[in-house]
């Protein structure tokens, strides 16, 4: 059986967590298919990365070039397409991240390899390759079957395959492939998001607001409630898009990760992009009028009702208790 490839992801000199998740996924697949897992490491001066990954794969294929120091979808695509052509892997695993979203569909179209994105689980047997993906904003899952092909590309959602200690001894192999100078895309720099006056990652109590808050005017009520219980207000992406709160209050995959003692989700449906940033909280309470909202799958306690009725009542009860 041809091998499994998994792309190592790193940024600003550190391996990203998703790398270890991909290796866990890749090892499971390799075991089931009785084949080997190769970690593909594109970077510059990557010795330390290779050391950290040594137990995670059977082989680490290293492409060392200054042009690979920072992710560039053009030069990464150029190099990875060469690797896939020469290695003929049965499956290439890439993280469903800002990098993977650019890379995987481009590689698939370039190499005419079927690809699927944002997969939660993956299964390969006599029936071919099948993946589980979420659809309709997390309300349904789909089992998706691929057309028959000697090679497949899959991006894996972060958090679906827990990182585990490996027990392998990787052979480290340097590839002769060299990076081409990108013609169309030039990486300039990373920019850190502006830092505001409130650091939501340091708070013990976070009150998260989602689309269910409906109007900007209703934000005051939430601010008041959060203040009363010694918490800070955070939010989902649509609230930032509407400019009701600054970007540094956004919780989720493209925002901050918070792990407070108490997280109260108000009018938040619970899209993966948000819950990725709050599911590590000690106690999660959700108020949402939609009983099917995925947030109730993350919360410890839930109230299925209109937040505009619950919040004032809750405020009054807490005031009573505090007297």
């Amino acid at each position: 059986m041809a091998e499994i490839l998994a792309l190592v992801e790193h940024r600003q000199g550190s391996l990203r967590d998703v790398t270890f998740e991909l290796m866990s996924c890749g090892r499971k697949l390799a075991e089931n298919l009785d084949t080997r897992l190769t970690a593909v490491l594109l970077g510059h001066n990557t010795g330390e990365f290779a050391d950290d990954l040594k137990t995670q794969a059977h082989r680490i294929l290293v492409l060392d070039d200054e042009r690979f120091k920072d992710f560039n979808s053009e030069s990464y695509q150029q190099a990875l397409s060469q690797v896939i052509k020469s290695e003929n892997p049965v499956i290439t695993l890439i993280g469903h991240t800002a990098f993977g979203m650019s890379l995987c569909p481009a590689l698939g179209a370039q190499l005419d390899i079927p690809s699927s994105t944002d997969c939660l689980d993956i299964e390969m047997n006599d029936g071919g390759l099948k993946v589980i993906r979420q659809m309709y904003e997390g309300k349904l899952d789909a089992r998706v079957r691929f057309r028959e092909s000697p090679s497949y590309l899959v991006t894996i959602r972060t958090g679906c395959f827990p990182a585990e200690d490996g027990n392998l001894q990787a052979e480290i192999v340097s590839s002769d492939l060299k990076a081409a100078e990108p013609q169309h895309l030039k990486f300039i720099e990373y920019l850190e998001a502006a830092v505001g006056d409130v650091d939501i990652t340091k708070a013990d109590v976070v009150v998260g607001v989602g689309r269910g808050i409906k109007e900007k005017e209703n934000m005051a009520m939430v601010e008041e409630f959060a203040g009363m219980i010694g918490g800070v207000v955070a939010c989902t992406r649509p609230i930032v898009d509407a400019e009701w709160l600054p970007k540094d209050r956004q919780v989720g995959s493209s925002g901050k990760t918070v792990k407070p003692k108490l997280y109260i989700a108000l009018g938040i449906s619970g899209a993966f992009q948000h819950t990725a940033g709050m599911k590590g909280s000690d106690t999660i309470i959700a108020v949402n009028k939609d009983p099917d909202a995925p947030i109730f799958g993350e919360a410890d306690y839930g109230i299925v009702d209109d937040l505009f009725k619950v919040l004032p009542a809750l405020r009054d009860k807490i005031t009573e208790l505090k007297q």
Binding site: R11, F71, T97, A98, F99, H184, L185, K186, F187, I188, E189, Y190, L191, E192, A193, K247, D248, Q250, S253, S254, G255, K256, T257
Partner: peptide
């Protein structure tokens, strides 16, 4: 990118 980081590119 993830975690509120931005990537600045020319294309």
């Amino acid at each position: 990118l993830e975690g509120g980081l931005l990537e600045h590119d020319e294309i």
